[in-house]
């Protein structure tokens, strides 16, 4: 079968790849582009471990076709740190032990960043609802929610 040729932008860099027409963006990222930060927890839109930004909108890459990336702007967890300096959310997750096994963490970070970019001063309830599509089997969520709220406060303090 003919593979598709897709031109896109990933984390600000132009990127081209070949993929099957029914291949998901998550499989493209992980298996073709070696961007294995995005995880597959469920493959059905329930866990959020595969979260990416598609044209500045948070989506599950397991429910998107690679072919849909044509002409789009994709951002993944790999683009979150600025070179060697971590994004404040990444730093705070480390400091406050907001992760254990780490499988949910890339998705949590991408989703949390999307929230703070849109709403720099969320309430705890807003954080919990926003992250309701990101499942974590380890932490019990509390440390994650705290870390997001603390980071928001820290970023606001600097602004």
């Amino acid at each position: 079968m003919a593979k598709m040729h897709v031109s896109t932008t990933i984390n600000g860099e132009p990127e081209e790849f070949l993929c099957e027409p029914n291949e998901t963006m998550l499989d493209v990222l992980r298996d073709r582009l070696n961007l294995t930060g995005s995880k597959e927890g469920c493959g059905s839109g329930d866990c959020g471990a595969c979260s990416i930004m598609l044209n500045d909108t948070l989506v599950c890459s397991c429910l998107m076709l690679g072919a849909e990336a044509e002409g789009a702007e994709i951002k993944t967890i790999e683009g979150m740190a600025d070179g060697l300096s971590l994004h404040p959310l990444q730093q705070k997750f480390l400091e406050s032990a907001a992760l254990q096994c780490g499988i949910c963490t890339p998705g949590m970070l991408v989703a949390a960043k999307a929230l703070l970019d849109e709403n720099p001063d969320p309430t705890e309830t807003e954080v919990r609802f926003w992250l309701a599509g990101n499942l974590c089997r380890c932490t019990g969520y509390d440390k994650i929610v705290r870390a997001v709220l603390d980071t928001a406060e820290e970023i606001r303090g600097k602004a």
């Binding site: 839109g45 959020g48 989506v59 929230l115 599509g133």
Partner: peptide
Amino acid sequence: IGSTQVQGR
């Protein structure tokens, strides 16, 4: 419908 991620689509 669904989560923030699902809402995006």
